[in-house]
Amino acid sequence: MYYAGIDAGSNTIKTVILGEEGIASYHVIKTGLGGEEQAARCLEEACAKARIGREEIACIYCTGYGREYLNFPQGRKSEIICHGVGVHWILPEVRTIVDIGGQDSKGIRLNERGEVENFNMNDKCAAGTGRFLETMATALQVPLEEFGACALRATEPVRVSSTCTVFAETEVISHIARGKKRDEILLGVCQSIVDRIAAMVRSIGVKPPVAMTGGVAKNPAVVKLMGDRLGLPLLLPPEPQITGALGAALMARQDILSRQNSQPALSG
């Protein structure tokens, strides 16, 4: 039996297909204009990778900002709960998650059962999120995938002081004009993300071990700087972008199993 979790985020849609043996496949696509069609496409792609037909999926759960607009899932859960469930399944020892997604960042604290004990997230500003990083990558003409590695080559960050994505872009452009080294500016951008969200993460009462998830966890400079700021090494799931979708798939599985009067199976 298969289960699917879809994380319809602001920037990307992620789908995870869960089989009896674990993750059967996953797929990530740009949200674009979003909506049902794009989410359905992401699901179809994930099914194709798993070499299954959509009809073989027993239950679909959805999370992320787009979850309210999708008609086909049988269940909807907030991304905070889903990230908790997903991370706990991969890294059961983790007690705190720093999740930085397309336009939000979250601190989530878990108990030993993977249940959310406390959380916080940014309210209304895209500084300190993946969108901020994307804007800066465009301004500095660096592929997003290389952003972190380039930043880590710098020894000293250039200070990017603005808390506003738009103004920070202007600030970065002025640094370029003044001849500052690109890698130092990149490191400064990563530093500003950490500056922006570290206090928010700390406000939940950080308990080790800490894992980082979300698309920004693919940036090794942000991961390193965040670890330095929290004074702890950060654990990374093998694919940090899909933990929300994985959590949704696990909850879909739990839904079916509990309907069959079976024990919940959120771990291992």
């Binding site: 900002y65 907030s78 905070i80 959310v116 959380f119 997230m121 209304k124």
Partner: peptide
């Protein structure tokens, strides 16, 4: 609206 709703829903789920 959107992030506040997300927070509130997650809080209630918790």
């Amino acid at each position: 609206e959107a992030p506040t709703r997300v927070k509130m829903e997650a809080f209630l789920e918790m």
